[in-house]
């Protein structure tokens, strides 16, 4: 029996499932009693599950995230919500120094099974400090798991797997995906390690790799290119850390051309990790063309509308860049 969901309601379904089935789950963060903060993804959770499990907080990203880490060491399964990743930077110590390293530096005797939900909330002329994703930073850190769902099913299932994981997980969702629709099977719990990169469209001539909203761009561009008889394989990365590039390498060995789309900056960004992990596994003559990275320009997000329009890649800019790079 399938249910109709969109990306936002799928996240809400995951919260409801977790709160219904796991008393040790609680959710804490700013704006949770005022759900316009987080779209429809947490609607009415506070009235349904109580304000002692859905906890709105002072403006204290650092202490609230640290609270989640501490509670997770004692058996709770906290989900800390940051309605914008930009503000979450105040919590870097709790995430990078404490949660990510705790297992290793205690000899794997205790594990902070915290989930940190960071929301990408950009566009609409919001500018430099209301726009960032920063997944590349977190993917750099051993000990953190970093998930970025693109599909509606993953938005739901990865949040459940994240909350049930014993490791600290950064779950990053993008508000630009909230209206994506799909029909989903009933929930069945999956291990977090199942969410490896996945081929979401098969093709022969070119592989395009993305994550989160960039996967949507990749798929949109591939469908246009298909009309011109260019067969594109699309891979959704899903889990950035720990990163498993095996499927990407296999795909590129077949198509011999690849492009990476990433919602971060090019400089030391995740697109570089993807590119190098593929290239270092190929012989020099195995590629028919130089690889392509499509990323943000190396500047903070602008507020001015014409600049914003060129700052964020869209389907037509992706098609333009791909044609130029691969002489298609």
């Amino acid at each position: 029996m399938k249910t109709k969901e969109n990306y936002g309601s799928a996240i809400l379904s995951a919260f409801e499932y977790l709160l219904d089935n796991y008393p040790e789950v609680f959710v804490i963060g700013q704006g949770l009693w005022s759900p316009w903060y987080v779209g429809n993804t947490m609607k009415d959770l506070d009235s349904k599950f109580g304000k002692d499990r859905i906890i709105d907080t002072p403006v204290s990203e650092s202490a609230v995230t640290g609270l989640g880490v501490g509670a997770s060491l004692c058996g709770s399964k906290p989900i800390v919500v940051h309605p914008r990743i930009d503000f979450m930077l105040y919590a870097i110590d709790s995430i990078v120094n404490q949660a990510a390293k705790w297992s290793h530096m205690t000899g794997a005797q205790s594990h902070p099974g915290i989930t940190i939900r960071g929301i990408i909330n950009r566009g609409g002329e919001q500018g430099a400090q209301h726009s960032q994703s920063l997944h590349s930073w977190f993917a750099h850190i051993p000990g953190l798991r970093v998930l970025m769902p693109y599909s509606v099913a993953d938005a739901r299932d990865m949040l459940i797997a994240a909350a049930l994981s014993k490791d600290p997980v950064m779950y990053i969702d993008d508000r630009w995906l909230y209206d994506t629709k799909d029909e989903l099977d009933p929930i069945s719990e999956k291990s977090i390690s199942e969410f490896k990169p996945k081929i979401i469209k098969y093709g022969e001539d070119l592989t395009i790799i993305g994550s989160s909203f960039s996967t949507k761009l990749a798929l949109g561009a591939s469908l246009e290119l298909e009309k011109e008889r260019i067969s594109v394989e699309v891979i959704d990365i899903r889990t950035l850390n720990p990163f498993d590039s095996k499927l990407l390498i296999e795909s590129v060995k077949k198509t011999k051309r690849f492009a990476v789309i990433d919602g971060g900056w090019k400089n030391s960004g995740f697109s570089a990790e993807v590119t190098s992990s593929i290239v270092e596994s190929m012989e020099p003559n195995q590629l028919l063309s130089k690889p392509l990275r499509i990323t943000l320009a190396n500047s903070p997000a602008p507020t001015s509308k014409p600049l914003e329009d060129i700052y964020f890649p869209n389907i037509s800019s992706v098609i333009r860049d791909i044609k130029a790079n691969f002489f298609l």
Binding site: S62, A63, V64, T65, G66, L67, G68, V69, G70, A71, S72, L73, C74, S76, P78, D93, S94, N97, Q98
Partner: peptide, 9 residues
């Protein structure tokens, strides 16, 4: 570093 962790515990 551990102060908020103690609050959470």
């Amino acid at each position: 570093g551990t102060v908020p962790l103690a609050v959470g515990a």
